[in-house]
């Protein structure tokens, strides 16, 4: 008896410990970034760091605005493409398609999710970049080298589809069949049932799937970096090249140049990314909270 109780106590202690590590981890990372970038934000005004477009490290000018905008642009455009696609695909697969189709799709989705991002990057360079340069940009009377926000967004949307789709499929799987039967028995059509009942019932889950997809897309580095051009500028349209925050850090970290405060600037870039992700999460949490109230 005492041994069992002891193990019981021990195991619950362990769980508390693991949980606290998990809770402290983001805090520790955040704190580390704040400290490591202090050389930068102690010597430069915060407002100009964020909103200035002037990026010339050799002259100690660190304006992060082009990077912040590139990151947001590429993520938002990617999500605009993949969000409705995933939702419609999930509705089709769970409500209309024969069951074998879902069974076939599951491993396909898993494989898509498992492809390393560098492979998506190569595919982007070989397929998406020429597609944007030769077909999509001319269609909108634009000139583009192909290495652009749009190319990054397309690659990113393809990458985020398996991730988001998987979560939305799970959301629909959890809606009880009886709820659909209740709606149909009241004289609703199948589409009305999906629209008024399933989507509402699943709203919370769908929104959190989008939220997680957003965070993940925002942080995606390699594949985007390979197709987006990496030019420091505020992109005027999706056909322009951009330079997202993760690419900035990944491209330059470790090349410790003799420029003072350069590596703390890169740390500051990571910190910005971290803050943006937290902000996005808070926004989505709020939306979820609102949607649960229905």
């Amino acid at each position: 008896m005492t041994k069992r109780l002891f193990i019981d106590k021990l195991s619950s202690r362990w769980m508390v410990l693991c949980l606290s590590v998990l809770l402290l981890l983001p805090l520790a990372i955040g704190l580390g970034l704040v400290i490591k970038s202090s050389d930068l934000w102690l010597t430069h005004a915060l407002g100009s760091l964020i909103f200035s477009q002037d990026w010339s490290p050799s002259e100690s000018q660190f304006g992060f605005w082009p990077f912040i905008l590139s990151s947001l642009w590429v993520t938002v455009v990617a999500l605009i493409i993949s969000m409705p696609l995933c939702l419609l695909a999930a509705i089709f697969l769970t409500q209309f398609a024969p069951t074998w189709m879902l069974k076939v799709m599951r491993p396909v989705i898993d494989i898509l999710a498992g492809i390393p991002s560098v492979v998506y990057g190569v595919w982007g360079v070989l397929v998406i970049v020429p597609l944007v340069a030769d077909i999509i940009a001319p269609m909108f009377h634009n000139e583009s080298l192909g290495y652009s926000i749009l190319a990054g967004a397309l690659v990113l949307s393809v990458m985020s589809i398996p991730y988001i789709l998987n979560m939305i499929l799970e959301v629909f799987r959890q809606v009880p069949v009886e709820l659909g039967e209740a709606s149909l028995s009241l004289g609703a059509t199948k589409w009305e049932t999906i629209k008024y009942v399933f989507l509402r019932k699943g709203a919370t889950g769908i929104i959190s799937a989008y939220g997680l997809g957003f965070s993940k897309a925002l942080g995606e580095t390699i594949a985007v970096m390979m197709v987006i051009g990496n030019v420091v500028q505020v992109p005027a349209s999706v056909f322009d090249a951009g330079y997202p925050l993760p690419a900035l850090v990944a491209n330059n970290y470790g090349e410790m140049m003799s420029i003072p405060t350069y590596d703390s600037a890169l740390m500051f870039g990571s910190l910005l990314l971290f803050i943006i992700i937290i902000t996005i999460n808070v926004i989505f949490r709020y939306i979820i909270y609102k949607s649960e109230a229905i």
């Binding site: 039967e181 209740a182 028995s185 009241l186 609703a188 009305e192 509402r200 019932k201 709203a203 229905i294």
Partner: peptide, 29 residues
């Protein structure tokens, strides 16, 4: 289906307000 009202083993209220649960069928009609 509207000639018949269904009550199931367990209640499955629609994910909306009390009012809208009743109004739902009316609007469909």
């Amino acid at each position: 289906r509207q000639k018949m009202g269904l009550v199931m083993q367990r209640p499955y209220p629609l994910p909306m307000s009390i009012y809208d649960n009743i109004a739902y069928g009316l609007k469909l009609k």
